[in-house]
Design a protein around this nucleic acid. Structure first.
Lengths: 154, 154
DNA sequence: ATATCAATTGATAACAATTATAATCAAAAA
DNA sequence: TTTTTGATTATAATTGTTATCAATTGATAT
């Protein structure tokens, strides 16, 4: 599986842009490395342990800033809130209906589709989003429950 | 391109389920045939011409009912509200960043990916959502503007 | 036809996720 | 130090959607 750029590089990118490395921002970034596709609410909730007075606005604006810099990717699903992930090489997601977990999955050849779309129908593709829905191997084996949803990265 | 089932069949399905074919419901369904991936708000807005006293609640509940019956598919995107389409054979979407239009596109071989995912990694795939983002042929040719977004079907 | 009764509608309020506003606070520049 | 700029916070507003519930409609039995 592809990895996102390391944390030092992310912090460096902020500095380059003249943005301040506040403790709140560092913590949001740290949590993005620790969690699997968290929502803004999950980041906020965990942040509150270290920063009891942090506001949701700070979390939202930090995530938006990181997204605008291209460092973070926002994923929207049918459920209410967005999920966030650190930017990395093109990959797909697998959404398990049993445990609720969102997995990163490699699907080589997926990006081939966009070349076909361009060559055959003239669409200019900037990026592709590919989402699978079903049951993950762990749940299929009966080894996971919904309570495991929202866990940290393995 | 695949076609959704015809309108007679949709209305028949409601009857089968013992649901009433009220004028409001027929109008929502009619609009789904006429529009390209409308939002609930767009359906409501157009409905208001024929039914000045219709409420948003009716539109939402009708769309939800159709979705629960599997006759309609709900698409969620970034910041905006949900878009709806009549159910049809598996297909992908192309989102044009220039005109905002959502196109249905055929991408044969797309569903091959889910077999690979299952065979190689053990994920049981129920369905796939594939979204492309970029510039459509009409916009690339300079022939379309944002004002054309939300048009009816061609 | 009329009574009955569940399905449907629509006005209103509630709701959750997000964004806007304005005041405060902190860091860097002058 | 003072000034300026950026960041954070509390608060309120906005948006899309759902819940509540009384009024209305329509199908069915009588």
């Amino acid at each position: 599986m592809n990895e996102p750029m390391d944390m030092e590089a992310v912090l460096e990118r902020l500095k380059e842009k003249g943005l301040r490395l506040t403790p709140q921002r560092v913590e949001v970034i740290t949590l993005l490395y620790q969690l699997s596709h968290p929502t803004a609410e999950q980041v906020y909730s965990l942040m509150s342990k270290k920063f009891p007075y942090v506001s949701q606005t700070t979390v939202y604006s930090t995530l938006k800033m990181l997204k605008d810099l291209g460092l973070v990717n926002e994923l929207t699903y049918g459920d209410r809130s967005s999920h966030f992930e650190l930017t990395q090489e093109e990959h797909a997601h697998f959404n398990c209906k049993s445990c609720g977990e969102i997995y990163d999955v490699d699907v080589k050849d997926a990006h081939q589709l966009q070349y076909m779309l361009h060559a055959e129908q003239g669409y200019q593709v900037d990026f592709v989003r590919l989402e699978f829905y079903g049951t993950c191997p762990a749940c299929a084996a009966g080894g996971k429950s919904e309570a495991d949803a929202g866990r940290t990265k393995q």
